[in-house]
Nucleic acid binder design. Structure first.
Length: 391
DNA sequence: TGCCTCGGAATCTAAACCAC
DNA sequence: TGGTTTAGATTCCGAGGCAG
């Protein structure tokens, strides 16, 4: 499942519709744009992205009292922000159970990454209610040997002549962002902290989903020209055209990324650390990127949300008995091994196709290539996580 | 226990509506 | 005419439940 999804999503991200976009060009840090030195002379003490595991510390995500997973901490030697600079974004929330730095916004549940749908699923995927992709045959049909039956369904024509009630105009006080937001499907206004100042004129706006905070000088701040050089600012005293638009992220608290059990981060939406999947699934960053828990913990995690089931949807071939009977009688159709709803039978005939799928790279399925930079390769190694290559 | 099924939330998309 | 809103159509996530 997860492998299938990750594969599908990865292929979708490589489709012509959603060609992965490279991250925005990174302006390399110019060491002396100010009168003083920035960054201040090092070396900096290593800043761990999460606390060094303490044998005496019991991870709250390991309810059995197990010690934290021995994941090597990665550290970031980060200079403090340059004088007069402010981060345009706040840093992600800390891992559960850890305090907030003073002044940090209250913890919020990380917003679920928006689901991306294909325009038209193939008939096989549609009948199986499984993820499809734009390619024909799609990944799933290829995987299950249904390539020949992987065709687009026929989208039903929308009913016409349906009358509607009076429109409720959305609140467009915020300079008319409602429409654009709706069409874009983003919830940026509610996700961006209100304290984040807009970039000053002349400074670029970071691409949506850009993984690291930008820093801008405050609106009135103009960096002191180094060594008496003249400003290259434009007219009206605007800041110079992007001398260096941002600086490396500064972890305000020492466990921004990668702490085992840390929730998926609202921002940036990337780079999972080697997450230790706890037995009760509490550390599961996303079920789409994690293999189903062996004991069905996810299924039983919320007993309140019971679902009713019927054996057959719309009286179709819903049950296994029906499928089996159909198989027996129609073994030659679907290339002798599959029903349109290919999962069950294909899985039986190709058990390895599911069982031996390598675990998917976490989070890759949630990169939004259409709106943000390309997927950032997940950091999978235990060694200290490298800083951004462009830094 | 693992896998399959399918309910329903999330998303897409085009028709209807509205302002200019 | 173009932009916005609404709602039908569709996708597919994820939890319940069954077969082995």
């Amino acid at each position: 499942m997860s492998a299938e999804q990750s594969k599908a999503s990865s292929s979708a991200s490589s489709s012509p519709h959603e060609a992965p976009q490279p991250p925005p060009p990174v302006a390399h840090y110019a060491p002396a744009p100010y009168g003083g030195h920035y960054p201040p002379p090092g070396p900096y003490p290593p800043m761990y992205a999460y606390p060094v595991p303490d044998p005496a510390h019991h991870d709250p995500n390991n309810p059995n009292g197990a010690s934290p997973q021995p994941v090597a901490p990665f550290f970031m030697a980060m200079p403090p922000p340059p004088p007069g600079m402010v981060y345009a974004y706040t840093v992600p929330p800390p891992a559960p159970g850890y305090p907030f730095a003073p002044g940090m916004p209250a913890p919020q549940p990380p917003p679920k990454p928006k689901r991306k749908q294909v325009k038209m699923a193939c008939t096989n995927c549609a009948s199986a209610c499984k993820r499809c992709d734009e390619a024909r045959p799609c990944e799933r049909c290829l995987k299950y040997g249904l390539a020949e039956t992987c065709i687009d369904g026929v989208r039903k024509e929308r009913k016409k002549g349906i009358k509607r009630g009076p429109y409720k105009r959305k609140n467009r006080a915020g300079s008319g962002e409602a429409g654009a937001d709706q069409s874009e499907g983003t919830e940026a206004p509610s996700e961006q902290p209100a304290a984040v100042p807009p970039p000053p004129p002349g400074y670029p706006i970071p691409a949506e989903g850009y993984p690291f905070p930008y820093v801008y000088p405050p609106m009135s701040y103009v960096p002191a020209p180094p060594d008496g050089q003249q400003h290259t600012e434009g007219a009206n005293g605007a800041p110079p055209a992007m001398p260096h638009p941002f600086y490396p992220p500064y972890p305000l608290y020492p466990h921004a990324y990668g702490y085992p059990g840390a929730p998926p981060m609202a921002y940036p939406p990337i780079i999972p650390a080697p997450v230790a999947t706890s037995p009760n699934g509490t550390a599961k960053p996303d079920s789409t990127s994690a293999p189903p828990s062996a004991n069905g913990a996810s299924a039983s995690s919320d007993p309140v949300k019971g679902k009713k089931r019927s054996k057959a949807k719309n009286g179709d071939e819903g049950g296994r008995a029906f499928k089996k009977a159909k198989d027996a009688s129609q073994g030659d159709v679907q290339q002798q091994h599959s029903l349109p709803n290919g999962d069950a039978d294909v899985a039986k005939e190709h058990p390895a196709s599911q069982a031996q799928q390598p675990p998917p790279p976490p989070y890759t399925s949630h990169v939004e290539p259409a709106t943000g930079p390309g997927p950032v390769p997940a950091f999978g190694g235990p060694e200290p996580r490298p800083l951004m290559a462009a830094m």
